[in-house]
Simulated assay, not measured.
Amino acid sequence: MTEPVTTGWTDFAVATAGAAAALAGLVMVAISVNIRQILGLAGVSARAAAAIGSLVLVVVSSALILIPGQPGSALGAELFAAAAAAVLLHGVSLSQSMRQATRPRAARLLSLPIAAAQLVPLIVGALLLVFGNDGSLAGAALYWVAAGLILTVIGSMLDAWVLMVEILR
């Protein structure tokens, strides 16, 4: 019997789930403290939703990795579905961001690559799990997933900075 694809990833998944859950709570506090400013500025509420959704994506993805014994293809499909929800949230946020004439053009143009850097590695990893029939692809897939989860936490923290500090300037 072959080992599950997630063998050796338990500590990583536990650490990322815990960290992302704590950060999501802090972002929720930041949102509640600055809710008037967030609601008063066009597109910022969608950015807040994307930040929270991304951190929830990290928690959910980490929890999925912790499910014992599931086939890699099932894990890949689950991760892909979770990432698709985050893509929708980021899509709405990006759409609203691009329409903000008051926001500097450079900041608007950077939004898409920052969102892509977070979500593309996770999606690549999920697809490698779904379609990777040999063990080497499945093993590499989790490194892609890990990169996506780490970059998603970083991207969410950038959004959290905007929600806590930049909107008050």
Rank of each mutant, 00 (worst) to 15 (best):
A20Y: 01
V33F: 10
G125R: 05
S136H: 12
A117Y: 04
L109W: 11
L128C: 15
I167F: 05
A86M: 00
R47M: 14
A106P: 04
L122R: 01
T6K: 01
A30K: 10
V92S: 00
V60R: 02
L64Y: 05
A51W: 03
G148F: 01
G155F: 03
Q37C: 05
A126G: 09
G72E: 06
M164A: 12
V59K: 02
G72I: 05
V153E: 06
W9S: 00
T152A: 11
S156Q: 05
I38L: 08
M1S: 15
G132D: 03
L168A: 12
L94C: 09
A85Q: 06
G155C: 06
F12Y: 15
L39R: 13
M157Q: 12
Y143S: 15
D134P: 05
A107L: 15
V14F: 03
V120A: 05
V153Y: 02
A160Q: 03
L57I: 04
S73L: 05
E3P: 03
D159I: 09
L128I: 10
I123P: 00
A21Y: 06
T7H: 09
A101N: 12
A30W: 00
L168P: 01
G76I: 06
G8S: 09
P113R: 06
F12M: 08
A86S: 11
A147S: 11
T6Q: 10
I35C: 01
G69M: 07
S97A: 14
V124H: 08
R36S: 14
A126M: 07
A46T: 12
Y143C: 12
R169T: 13
I65P: 01
I35K: 12
M164P: 05
L57D: 02
A81F: 10
L88Y: 12
T16Q: 14
L109R: 13
R47W: 08
Q100A: 14
V165G: 09
V56R: 06
Q37W: 09
V5N: 02
A77I: 11
A74E: 13
V87C: 06
L127K: 09
S32Q: 15
M164Y: 10
V165A: 15
A107R: 15
G132V: 07
L88E: 02
V124T: 13
G76Q: 01
A83S: 15
A15C: 07
L94R: 00
V29M: 11
L23T: 00
L112P: 01
A126H: 06
P4Q: 04
V56Y: 03
I150C: 10
P121Y: 04
D134I: 09
L88W: 10
